[in-house]
Design a binder for these strands. Structure first.
Lengths: 170, 170
DNA sequence: CTCTATGCAAAAGCTTTGCACGCCA
DNA sequence: TGGCGTGCAAAGCTTTTGCATAGAG
């Protein structure tokens, strides 16, 4: 349960190479190191942490290359970003147990409830990490609106800011 | 399942008042409106969205008051922030199904796996929101290190930036 | 050799902070 | 009235972008 750790990194690197070739994306030294850093850690570093780590091996690397690379890797579907994180931090005044549906395209977040999910049993091993305050399910997908948008604009709006939805009075 | 919507807002407002009084926090017009906005919406707005909404009713409100209020509400345990969001966006190169343990204090994120959780059944109603790409569990708690820190410094470091953990070579 | 990716630097956002005034308790 | 909360403005960060150069394919 421990020895396959480095193998995973290898596999991920192989996959990176395959996907990059497929997409006609160049695999530079920097990109390799940035991805290697991410693929080899158990943490979930942010851009700056990756930057500092990679910098030790590639002193000339720049922070904006890290950003651009991570963005590219994300576009290629090789890395994910944690949380809804469309723009700024999002707030929730709902203190009752509930779960989230998040649109990966526009960042829409919707609550949903489920007795079944509220009561899910967590692995005992979690205790090793620390105490548990709360657990909820995060479902990701393409919201109905974005599905429609994706059908018509096959590519024109892959990333937009947010839909403020000032008025929701149809 | 629909008519209690506005009641919920009411309940939350009541709770706000109770907690605020308990904590000796003043309930200003601005704070009321900011909280009301958050308590009354199904979205999970960010600070700016709340600002724009509140601004329509309280034209003199300022964005920094919104930030300060949200921060205070969070300290009072009346609102939560979505995602790990300690500092910047965090990345993940693990594409296999997995789940996250997040420390609410230091922002540490750890993967864990669970066949049981991988296979959880989601409510059909989710389909109404849109397509489903992936679902995972987010467990929040206090990590072991932060528990220790909290024991000694009963209050000295309620919020720190992150633990870069430059070297993890024990 | 061509065209993408990089580095630098500056800009653009988001969030926080210092200070003097205003307002709730 | 006293002291917390607000508004304003400016600073601090994170993230993005323009441009000339360097390097992968």
């Amino acid at each position: 349960m421990r020895k396959s750790e480095s193998n995973r990194s290898e596999q991920r690197l192989e996959r990176l190479k395959a996907v990059a070739k497929e997409a006609g994306v160049k695999l530079t030294h920097q990109r390799l190191e940035i991805f290697r850093e991410l693929a080899g850690t158990e943490d979930h570093p942010d851009a700056d942490a990756i930057f500092r780590a990679v910098q030790q091996r590639v002193p000339t690397v720049s922070l904006d290359t890290v950003y651009r690379t991570l963005s590219k890797l994300h576009d290629l579907g090789l890395v994910t970003m944690l949380g809804p994180q469309r723009d700024g931090v999002r707030f929730d005044a709902n203190l009752d147990p509930h779960h989230h549906y998040v649109c990966v395209r526009c960042g829409l977040v919707r609550d949903f409830e489920s007795e079944e999910l509220n009561g899910l049993r967590l692995p005992d091993a979690l205790k090793n990490f620390g105490s548990i305050v709360d657990a909820h399910v995060e479902v990701r997908g393409l919201c109905a609106e974005c599905q429609k948008a994706a059908e018509s604009n096959r590519d024109s709006a892959p990333k937009q800011k947010r839909e403020p939805r000032e008025d929701s009075t149809p």
